[in-house]
């Protein structure tokens, strides 16, 4: 545990993956429960950072299975044994994990990567194209995401490639329910929770409390609003007043990410040129 993270000056030397990690980490509070799925280097780095700084008691279920693990660093897979190192408990999946996840009292926040995300936060990891049985691209599939979208979780999306291909007017297939067609559509189905935040390589978005349309919350330092809008496949709502800049990481956070959490740069995977 480092103690200088609070007093550390704002970093000038940092990469956007590090900014996304610190932004995501800031959303997890002490005592929250977090879990991760496969290829989830940004969330895993964020959980590890939170546990080393402001949220030492953040409960982490590595790969949704290994309770309170002590991985030596971010490994090449977020769904393999090195991530569960020194776990306190192996949580059996069929019964125990889903009893905990579906219950609603625990694991309230869930991080999601999605191939397509639309203006209402509906996510697609299933198929690209109109014909489900003969898709243009068969994506991996929804895995547990379709569950997490419907059982009261707060969904935090991360997207390393903000583009009109990944942020689309309407998803080709709803693999996970966002706000559906907006307004009170979720409530009418009895669904609680839903998308909260979208963190990309350009900006941070949230959702308007009434219309449930995606809204720009902040742009990353050096990125203009016009750039973000141009890279988005639909018109973003704007916040009241001027658009703030996303808070950059501190020097101590960057040092922790680079030297302690992820010295092998796994977090860069999935980024263009990463």
């Amino acid at each position: 545990m480092t103690t200088d993270w609070q007093s550390s000056p704002v970093a000038t030397d940092y990469a956007v993956d590090e900014l996304m990690i610190t932004t995501l980490a800031g959303l997890f509070k002490n005592g929250d429960q977090a879990c991760n799925g496969m290829a989830s280097f940004i969330p895993v780095s964020a959980f590890m950072l939170a546990r080393l700084t402001h949220a030492p008691d953040l409960v982490w279920l590595a790969s949704a299975a290994g309770l309170d693990p002590r991985p030596d660093r971010v490994p090449a897979s977020t769904l393999e044994a090195p991530l569960w190192r020194d776990s306190v408990m192996y949580i059996e999946q069929y019964g125990d994990f889903w009893n905990l996840a579906l219950n609603g009292r625990w694991i309230q926040k869930f991080c999601v990567g999605a191939a397509q995300l639309d203006r209402y936060g509906n996510a697609n990891n299933s198929v690209i194209g109109d014909d489900y049985d003969r898709p243009q691209v068969r994506l991996p599939g929804t895995a547990g995401l379709a569950d997490m979208g419907s059982i009261g979780k707060q969904l935090y999306f991360w997207n390393p490639n903000h583009s009109p291909r990944s942020l689309v007017e309407k998803v080709d297939f709803i693999s996970a329910a966002g706000y559906l067609d907006g307004g009170d559509a979720r409530e009418r189905l009895g669904l609680e929770g839903g998308p909260e935040v979208v963190i990309t390589n350009l900006a941070v978005m949230d959702f308007h409390p009434v219309s449930k349309q995606m809204r720009l919350q902040s742009v990353h330092p050096g990125v203009t609003v016009a750039t973000v809008q141009k890279a988005t496949g639909f018109e973003l709502l704007m916040p009241e007043g001027s658009v703030p800049e996303t808070a950059p990481p501190t020097e101590a956070q960057v040092r922790l990410i680079r030297e302690v959490i992820d010295p092998d740069n796994m977090r860069k995977r999935g980024f263009r040129g990463g």
């Binding site: 299933s126 929804t142 979208g149 419907s150 709803i174 693999s175």
Partner: peptide, 12 residues
């Protein structure tokens, strides 16, 4: 289950 409600998995 409560999972998957609201998704296109159901209509499919």
């Amino acid at each position: 289950t409560r999972g998957a409600i609201g998704t296109d998995l159901i209509a499919r």
